[in-house]
């Protein structure tokens, strides 16, 4: 009896395995499919685009700018990357074509240095002024309240004379 049960068990197990194998043959592959990226990829293009600003849409980096002009610029970057240009060459190309103002970081020349020097200098100066002000406020707060000098009442001359007269008569 036990052997019959064992046989039944192995037979059903065999069928289950057979069915699983059959399903796995016809089941669609479980490989994750992702959208193909154009070559060079959008990420490659945007890595350079975020270092540029189109003069038409000021204050919007090229990688997120939705205008037609900016789309064209991004395609230009893709084209140059596909041709094997380096990032520096592409940035230089844009500077030559449209001027240095398209760069997110102004080149370190001439008056542009102000953009690099002024903010940290202003910050340090502000911090110094604040430090001095706080120090003087703290010194004022720690200073003991000056005791009022005792009021020495000076008697009025007429009052003195009046008192004297009264003493003489009294």
């Amino acid at each position: 009896m036990k052997q019959v049960k064992k046989k039944k068990f192995f037979r059903s197990l065999f069928f289950v395995l057979l069915l699983t194998a059959g399903f796995s043959l016809f089941a669609p592959p479980s490989v994750k499919v992702v959208a193909q990226q154009p070559t060079p990829s959008d990420d490659d293009v945007n890595a350079i685009a975020r270092k540029l600003y189109c003069p038409v849409c000021e204050n919007t980096p090229l990688d997120v700018c939705p205008t037609q002009a900016c789309k064209q610029w991004r395609e230009e970057i893709r084209l140059r990357l596909a041709q094997g240009w380096t990032e520096e060459e592409i940035l230089q190309y844009f500077v030559d074509q449209y001027g240095a103002r398209v760069l997110a970081e102004p080149p370190r020349t001439g008056l542009n240095w102000l953009a690099y020097i002024v903010p940290p200098v202003a910050f340090l100066l502000g911090a110094y002024i604040l430090f001095r002000a706080m120090r003087s406020w703290r010194a004022l707060a720690n200073q003991p309240v000056e005791a009022e000098p005792p009021v020495v009442e000076e008697k009025d001359e007429y009052v003195s004379r009046l008192e004297e007269e009264l003493r003489k008569r009294g």
Binding site: P55, D96, Q97, Y98, G99, R101
Partner: peptide, 10 residues
């Protein structure tokens, strides 16, 4: 022609 360096437009 192209306005190279946007000099003319500037």
């Amino acid at each position: 022609g192209a306005d190279r360096g946007t000099k003319i437009s500037q």
